[in-house]
Structures are given as structure tokens and as C-alpha cells.
């Protein structure tokens, strides 16, 4: 009988589970557009605070632009992390996802990609405009954009691991920030570093390649890690 049940279970392809979770989370994010827009607005406001605080020194502003945009992107993503798993845990749907016929890593991968689409991608798309404010030139803007396109998915991945580990913990959002921010450091260094290299006229492809490598490695490993963390947290 188990053989028969297994035969039933194996007809459920992981990629279908990915799509089910992805479509569900995208639809939920579209329903509560406010959260997506708020995170984006937060990013814009934080970036805009720096010229006000530092004053209109174009050389200095341009110098700090990569770091400012990257730190703001990081904080904005951090704000949206509870959306990945915390609300599903609170209303009990995380139990259903864990008991889904589809493999949990596939479902988690779908959730991570959906999170990036709603939290990371808007930041990357918005970043050239922000960089332009700081006086970055077109070649530097392209590198800034590329670094965020490669880096923000990694922010969603690392964030998902942190979110899974802090499920159901009281005061979890601060713990989540403390857990995740140090892990964001390599991405920050490579991301902001790429733009800085472009600013001094060095080829930025080394840093971008490293970001790409982190992204590929993360894509292979993170869904499984998140699935394990979710199972532990639900126990």
C-alpha cells in the first residue's frame, strides 16, 4: 500500500509546487499592495535623507552613493521579511504548506522568488533614479542596477533562512534583524564595492561575478535550508 501511496505522491512535481507557492504569495502581495509600496517608499525616503543631512556637496554625496543605496535597500528588504513566513505561521497555513503533497523546498523556493519579485526587484528597478540623484554617471548607474539585480535575490534568500529560524519567537523581528544583518555583510561589500570600482574606473565585473556566484550557490542550497528550518520551527 505504501508503494501505491508513494506512487501517488511522486506524481506531484516539485516545479508545480514551486508555481503553487509562487502564485499564491504574489497574489497575496498584490492584495496588500500597501506593504509593497510602503517598503519601496521607505527605501526612497531613507536614500533621500542623506543629502539633507550631509548637505549639497556633490563630491561627497557621489562618494557615498553606492553605500547609501545599498544600505537602504538592505533595510527595506529587512522590513518585508516577516511577510515571507510569519503571517503564514500565524494563520496556520504554514502547517498546510509543510503537509503539502509538494516537497517543502520547492514551496519555499517559490515563496523566496515571490518575495524577491515584490520586495527586491522594485528596489533594483528604482535604484538608477536614486543613484542619479546622487550624481552617478550612466556607466555607474548600470553597475548599481546590475549589483542590486544580482544582490537583492540573495537578500531574500538569507532573509528567508532567518525568518524560518525565528518563526514563533516573541520579539522575533528584532532577533531576525540581528540574525540576518551580519549575514548581509558580504553582499553589501560586493554590491557597493562593484559600484565604487566603477566610479574609480576599474572593471566591476569581478565583484558582480562574485555576487552572481553567491546567488547561484544560494539558489541551490537555501530552499533546502529554509525547509529544514521551517520543520524545526513548527515542531
Amino acid at each position: 500500500m505504501i508503494a501505491r501511496q508513494t506512487a501517488v505522491a511522486t506524481t506531484f512535481a516539485p516545479e508545480h509546487g514551486f508555481l503553487v507557492a509562487f502564485a499564491r504569495d504574489v497574489r497575496l502581495a498584490v492584495r496588500s499592495k500597501g506593504e509593497v509600496i510602503q517598503a519601496l517608499a521607505f527605501f526612497v525616503v531613507v536614500v533621500s535623507l542623506f543629502p539633507l543631512a550631509i548637505g549639497p556637496e556633490s563630491v561627497l554625496l557621489k562618494r557615498i552613493a553606492p553605500g547609501v543605496v545599498w544600505v537602504a535597500a538592505l533595510l527595506s528588504v529587512l522590513l518585508t521579511l516577516p511577510r515571507i513566513l510569519a503571517s503564514d505561521y500565524a494563520d496556520g497555513t504554514l502547517d498546510q504548506l509543510a503537509l503539502s503533497v509538494y516537497p517543502l523546498p520547492a514551496i519555499m523556493a517559490g515563496k523566496i522568488v515571490a518575495h524577491w519579485l515584490m520586495a527586491g526587484l522594485p528596489l533594483a528597478l528604482m535604484s538608477p533614479l536614486r543613484g542619479f540623484q546622487f550624481g552617478l554617471e550612466s556607466r555607474e548607474l548600470v553597475v548599481l542596477y546590475a549589483s542590486l539585480m544580482l544582490g537583492t535575490p540573495v537578500l531574500s534568500m538569507i532573509g528567508a533562512i532567518g525568518a524560518a529560524l525565528t518563526i514563533g519567537v516573541r520579539g522575533g523581528s528584532i532577533l531576525l534583524a540581528l540574525l540576518v544583518l551580519p549575514l548581509y555583510i558580504p553582499v553589501l561589500i560586493f554590491g557597493a564595492g562593484a559600484v565604487e570600482q566603477a566610479m574609480v574606473g576599474i572593471d566591476a565585473s569581478a565583484n558582480l561575478s562574485l555576487l552572481g556566484a553567491i546567488l547561484l550557490l544560494g539558489g541551490l542550497v537555501v530552499p533546502f535550508a529554509v525547509a529544514v528550518a521551517v520543520k524545526i520551527s513548527l515542531d
Partner: peptide, 16 residues
Amino acid sequence: AEWRGAALYLGHTNAL
């Protein structure tokens, strides 16, 4: 996999 295929859990939260 065979357990997830067999078990349907309806918790006290409604999972809605």
C-alpha cells in the same frame, strides 16, 4: 512523501 500524501490536517486555526 507518503505521509504528506495521506494526512490532511485541519488545525484549530483555520489556515485561511
